[in-house]
Design a protein around this nucleic acid. Structure first.
Length: 513
RNA sequence: GGGAGCAUAGCUCAACGGUUAGAGCAGGGGACUCAUAAUCCCUUGGUUGGGGGUUCGAAUCCCUCUGCUCCCA
């Protein structure tokens, strides 16, 4: 039995189309999923859409359609975009699906049985025009007026079921304190801890005024509100609480990759819910940062919004892998990021000039000087050879470590650094000059061999980030990754006599306007 | 108002309290032709935000000032 690995993105709110933020989170999760898959693990990768709630109702009304139809349409848009940027999710859950509905109701039943849910009343600032509650912060920021209509907010009270979050807070706090890796990165973990210490109220989990949602099994006049519905997806998708929970037993607990704005809910509500159910907590929760664009907050009116169309244009022009590489290497995983044309070009040039060119010149020289067959490395290694061999041999460990520590930026850039060094090696050893001197044939063989080994390892390491291009590059080296694990591929060398394929630019440069 | 953090080269960032504070990019100079007008080498550039302290030794620890960010209310 292979080791299992379960990883998730959040479920996205489909009241609009996906944008850079969604794509980033999904790509990072995908990169991790692909690495673990490459390591031979049995990977289950879940993403999906969170389709209930007042905003769906309103957006649908504005568009003259129904929430269900809006969700159907946009869930499909999300699915298609993920296809286009190479996402390898194994499941896609929609919270309107029957499997989720039934399972959430079962979850509530179990919580009710545990006396963790009770009827109380929810009081807050209510925007009558918008027919929705606004948070205390939001109300204050808008001077207790509706940001839409400008009319004063009213104090409104309605019955609501509550989850006894407060009961579990001490346990959650203890768990987070005792498991430093549970919530990452560190700075976010500290924020959660300090907020937990300040004390937390019980959580309102139902709305009687809303109809678009999952009815509470114990009181169908109420629908399940936001987090109880949304967070449950991570286990309802595995069949938790249904007749067949084999996937749940196989894959749970998993790793959650999320944006920093929803860390609180994942780090506190979700563990508390699982404690109430008596189920294991997630293995890890990693919160990534937010994007700005050209140094400013993304906004449609500013014209710097990286929307789905822009993502499609970039993927269409430069390829999905160039987009993926850019996103992953743009900043260290966990910190905020900034999308700039200049940085994108820089990152594309790394792929084309450093990685692609290194592969290309190596293949072309072996083609020209050795009839496309990898020559044997002969004779004693010189210091410069030794340095390249060491760097090549270290790559597997370095990349593995980077992935296990969620340092996706390093994982993406380490192979590029090896390609950079290989370029330097080729320039320093000058195989193209050695080729002119028959007496240097042995030396030439060594240089070509070591260059080929290095670029091969660089490409293997990049498979999770560049699922299509890395494999394409390896195909040029006539290396198949079919059925092979990361360790097997990284431990292997191209044998002497190995016939290479045809060398073609991996990331062709585009015509400049 | 409460809490946390950051400040290092033009830019993005590194540097268990321990040699001369390092990379990439950008800038300057040069080399090369296997390769995608690609590549490589050399190089300019820093009083580590200011001030004080602890220490044999501080970018790193402490205090303080300034500026910025984040979380919460």
């Amino acid at each position: 039995m292979n080791k299992t690995y379960y990883i998730t993105t959040p479920i996205y709110y489909p009241n609009g189309e996906p944008h850079l933020g969604h794509a980033y989170c999904t790509v990072c999760t995908d990169v991790l999923a692909r690495f673990h898959k490459l390591c031979g693990e049995d990977v289950h990768f879940l993403t999906g859409t969170d389709e209930h709630g007042i905003k769906m109702v309103k957006t649908a009304a504005q568009l003259g359609t129904e929430p269900r139809a809006l969700a159907d349409k946009n869930a499909q848009v999300f699915r298609e975009l993920w296809q286009e940027i190479g996402i390898c999710n194994t499941d896609f859950i929609r919270t309107t699906e029957q499997r989720h509905r039934e399972s959430v109701q079962e979850i509530i039943r179990r919580m009710v049985a545990r006396d963790d849910i009770y009827l109380g009343s929810y009081e807050g600032w209510y925007d009558e025009g918008q027919e929705e509650f606004v948070t205390e912060t939001e109300a204050k920021n808008n001077d207790y007026r509706s940001p839409i209509s400008g009319r004063p907010l009213v104090r409104y009270k309605e019955n609501s079921y509550f989850f006894r979050l407060g009961k579990y807070v001490p346990q959650v706090l203890k768990y987070i304190e005792e498991h430093p890796d549970f919530v990452q990165p560190e700075s976010r973990r500290n924020e959660v801890i300090s907020k937990l210490r300040a004390g937390v109220d019980d959580l309102s989990i139902s709305r009687a005024t809303l109809k678009w949602g999952i009815p509470l099994p114990n009181d169908p006049e109420h629908v399940v509100y936001v987090w109880m519905d949304a967070l449950s997806n991570y286990i309802t998708a595995l069949g938790y609480g249904s007749g067949d929970d084999s996937l749940y037993r196989k894959y749970w607990p998993g790793v959650h990759i999320i944006g920093k704005e929803i860390l609180w809910f994942h780090a506190v509500y979700w563990p508390a819910m699982l404690m109430s159910l008596g189920e294991p907590l997630p293995k890890q929760i990693f919160a990534h940062g937010w994007w700005t664009s050209e140094g400013k907050k993304m906004s449609k009116s500013m014209g710097n919004f990286i929307d789905m169309q822009k993502l499609r244009d970039v993927a269409g022009t430069y390829g999905q892998d160039a987009l993926r590489y850019y996103m992953v290497r743009a900043a260290s995983f966990g910190s905020d990021l900034d999308w700039t044309e200049a940085d994108f070009n820089k990152s594309f040039n790394e792929l084309a000039n450093v990685l692609g060119n290194c592969l290309n010149r190596t293949i072309k020289m072996i083609g020209k000087y050795r009839e496309g067959k990898v020559p044997d490395s002969q004779g004693a290694l010189e210091a410069i050879d030794q340095a390249l061999v060491e760097k090549t041999n270290k790559l597997a460990d370095e990349v593995r470590k980077a992935y296990l520590e969620y340092d996706l930026q390093a994982a993406a850039m380490l192979p590029i650094e090896l390609a950079r060094q290989t370029n330097g090696y080729i320039d320093a050893t000058e195989p193209f000059k050695l080729a002119k001197d028959p007496e240097k044939a042995q030396r030439l063989s060594t240089v070509l061999n070591l260059s080929a080994q290095a670029i091969m390892k660089a490409l293997v390491s990049l498979i999770p980030v560049l699922p299509s291009k890395a494999v394409e590059g390896l195909a040029q080296l006539n290396v198949s990754i079919e059925g092979k694990t990361f360790d097997e591929l990284m431990g292997a060398t191209l044998p002497a006599g190995h016939q290479l394929g045809e060398g073609k630019p991996l990331f062709p440069k585009l015509e400049r306007k």
